[in-house]
Design a binder for these strands. Structure first.
Length: 376
RNA sequence: GUGGGUAUGGCGUAGUUGGUUAACGCGUCAGUUUGUGGCACUGAAGACCGUGGGUUCGAAUCCCACUAUCCACC
């Protein structure tokens, strides 16, 4: 149950109640594709890092270790020991990212497993069944994330099919939630807006799925190669058609400034692999911008990653030590950077919420966002 | 001491019927990364090819000497 507390311009401050606890929005969901944050961060660490929601992936967990196995073991919460909300992505994005191995039909998508090449079929019902087995707090609809650029006609056909799939997702989710023995009988379902970069198709599809009265709405198919201004434009275009009393999720986004600009355009939830992936490649997000800890200039730098950061890493470790760990291939280097970056992202959201609470979001945005002044 | 082998960017190597800007891996330096098929990807710097002579239009490549190093033998 989402409650919109108030708005500053289009930006929203809200509270999202779930069976696994409350989420203060705007919020960033920490990506744990295979039921683990890459880089060695545990569920216990995540609490310390101020994470509110963990995000896992249907496709990956279906392939390994198998959703039925996880169901037999009591679901994702018990499996991972994470007690707060979990959102599971539907596998729809893999239709896009594994494009060379797929075949899309009205029924669903035929994949080849990236692990062993085995043929896999996933459609709306399969995705809902898997996510029900996982027992996540929020299930995402099974959609097609259209690649960029995409022809108009292809996009029009695709979003019509994604809408039909959504109806099937909703029916199947209702059926599964009502079944005795379901791990999370209150599992929520979010629909996903598509339409590539076409204003009219985006609006048309948003209107269509808004009528289905789902538990939340996501904007998908963005940050897939289009210019940032185009992404912002699509958000501006779609926002008026998103239900006001439902949480809104911008999938896969983004940089700190992308997130601030997303909040400014009425988005409540975000997720992105950047803080973890970039950390593994040596980048630290800081309030002074990105630092590449591989750079030679940090060789003798005994300052913390970010002098303005209160995270456990910055309280204890120096840039020089972390650079050494990275150069030596020690996994601790990546682990410390991932921890710092997740703290940074979760703290960014905290500061955004504080700014909203103080009715100073626009000032915060102007101070930090690259669209206006640029720091992060 | 005798015989034989080897000497190519920081390290390890490729490169001989002599022919345009000497290749590769690692390392170094820098960049990329947006619902994660990723200790990934892209790019850059860096060598007058042990030293000195010689042959040749032309030598990392052939010849001589020297130096260093390795192996075997006395």
């Amino acid at each position: 149950m989402y409650q919109l507390l108030f708005r500053e311009g289009t930006a929203r401050r809200g509270v999202f109640e779930t069976v696994h606890g409350t989420v203060q929005t705007p919020a960033f969901m920490n990506v744990a594709t295979s039921a683990a944050i890459k880089g060695g961060i545990s569920a216990g660490d995540l609490e310390t890092l101020k994470c509110q929601v963990m995000l896992c992936n249907t496709y990956h967990l279906h392939i390994r270790p198998g959703d039925e196995l996880i169901a037999d073991l009591g679901g994702l919460h018990r499996f991972t020991t994470w007690k707060r909300p979990i959102l599971t992505d539907s596998g729809g994005f893999q239709v896009f990212s594994l494009a060379s191995l797929r075949k899309i039909t009205e029924e669903g998508v035929h994949f080849s497993s990236h692990v062993d090449g085995k043929k896999i079929f996933m459609g709306p019902e399969e995705s809902m069944r898997i996510q029900s087995h996982l027992g996540s707090t929020i299930a995402m609809a099974f959609d097609e994330c259209i690649e960029n650029p995409a022809p108009y006609d292809y996009t029009a056909n695709s979003i019509a099919r994604t809408a039909r799939w959504l109806a099937r997702c909703k029916a199947e989710m209702a059926r599964l939630n009502a079944q005795p023995g379901t791990i999370n009988p209150h599992q929520l379902l979010f629909g996903i807006n598509q339409g590539a970069t076409y204003d009219d198709l985006r609006i048309q599809h948003m209107q269509q799925i808004a009528e289905m009265d789902l538990d939340g709405y996501a904007v998908g198919g963005l940050a897939v190669g289009e210019p940032t201004e185009v992404m912002y434009h699509i958000l501006d275009v779609v926002e008026p058609y998103m239900p006001i009393n439902k949480p809104r999720y911008l999938m896969g986004v983004g940089t700190p400034s992308n997130i601030i600009e997303g909040v400014a355009r009425g988005i409540d939830l975000f997720d992105c692999v950047m803080p973890s992936r970039n950390a593994r490649h040596g980048h630290a997000f800081t309030w002074q911008g990105i630092r590449n800890l591989n750079n030679a200039k940090y060789e003798r730098d005994m300052l913390p990653l970010d002098e303005d950061c209160e995270c456990p890493v910055c309280q204890n470790y120096s840039r020089a030590y972390i650079r050494h760990l990275l150069k030596s291939g020690e996994i601790l280097g990546g682990r410390l950077l991932v921890a710092h970056n997740l703290w940074f992202y979760n703290t960014l959201m905290e500061r955004i919420r504080e700014a909203l609470d103080n009715h100073s979001f626009e000032a915060f945005r102007a101070e930090n966002c690259e669209q206006v002044g640029t720091r992060i």
